[in-house]
């Protein structure tokens, strides 16, 4: 009964536990950072535009992740309801990621482009006005609150520290990009913006072009979720893990 040594010595027991768990943890976690195939090589993934980033911050601020996951698993039922399964690459610029595992509401990983802006706005203002059986709380105040994101560039710089490849140009034009995406032509050079953030949706998301609200930001974020990768150009076998 040699393990009596462990059973009767708290310090030794703690060290033993730590050692055992560390091995399990290290073996599972460390290779994910060093293996090349952890993140799939697909085209189209880009960092969030300033407006989308603002929307994402609101998403996190309001705790949307408490009820919505952003992770379509490779199962038939999920594929038929939500679309293609999520890739690691699609959340590579998420800090922190929003995968989640709690689906009180539906998964949102591929909600982008699925519904109209109008629907999203009406739904966020009063979920029951479009889905009578919904239990989601209303977020009507988002439409009234003007977006304050003066520190957009600072956010982007911070994200750059943890590995999001924002270019100096993108950081310099953060404020302008915010305007362009929320207003279109009126805000500035749309083409240059699209070169910086390909596939970004432009326009007044909440239907009120005069000001950019938190609603605009959140809907801009929702409308781009899961839309960056064009799966018609991806050989499915390169994704097999």
């Amino acid at each position: 009964m040699k393990h009596e040594i462990f059973e009767k010595n708290v310090i030794l027991l703690a060290i033993g536990i730590l050692l055992t768990i560390s091995i399990g943890g290290l073996v599972q976690i460390v290779p994910l950072y060093t293996m090349e195939q952890t993140i799939e090589k697909v085209d189209g993934i880009r960092p969030y535009s300033p407006l989308e980033l603002a929307g994402r911050n609101i998403y996190i601020r309001e705790g949307c992740y408490n009820c919505h996951s952003q992770m379509v698993r490779p199962f038939r039922d999920e594929a038929e309801r939500y679309g293609h399964y999520s890739l690691a690459a699609e959340s590579m610029y998420d800090h922190p990621f929003q995968w989640g595992s709690k689906r009180t509401g539906p998964d949102l990983a591929r909600v982008g482009g699925k519904y109209s802006n109008d629907w999203h706005v009406a739904h966020l203002i009063d979920p029951r006005s479009v889905v009578p059986e919904s239990i989601m709380p209303p977020y009507a105040f988002l439409a009234k609150r003007e977006l304050s994101f003066d520190d957009a560039a600072d956010h982007m710089k911070t994200l750059r520290i943890v590995g999001v490849p924002y270019s100096d140009e993108q950081i310099a034009t953060a404020k302008e990009d915010l305007r362009i995406q929320g207003m279109g032509e009126a805000g500035g050079d749309v083409e240059a913006f699209l070169a910086r953030y390909p596939k970004a949706k432009i326009g007044s998301f909440d239907g009120d072009a005069k000001k950019t609200t938190e609603m605009d930001a959140l809907v801009a974020y929702l409308q781009m979720l899961g839309t960056l990768v064009d799966f018609t150009n991806v050989d499915p076998e390169t994704l097999y893990r």
Binding site: V27, Q28, V30, P31, L32, T34, M35, E36, Q37, P74, F75, R76, A79, Y85, P236, E237, L239, Y240, R241
Partner: peptide, 30 residues
């Protein structure tokens, strides 16, 4: 089954199982 990681790769297992390949097969069957 796929099991042990090394620093750059992982053991693939003799049957070459992949959950995503399995999923693709199922969708093909559908």
């Amino acid at each position: 089954y796929p099991a042990w990681p090394s620093l750059s790769d992982y053991t693939k297992g003799v049957i070459g199982y992949s959950s995503r390949a399995e999923h693709a097969k199922e969708m093909e069957a559908v």
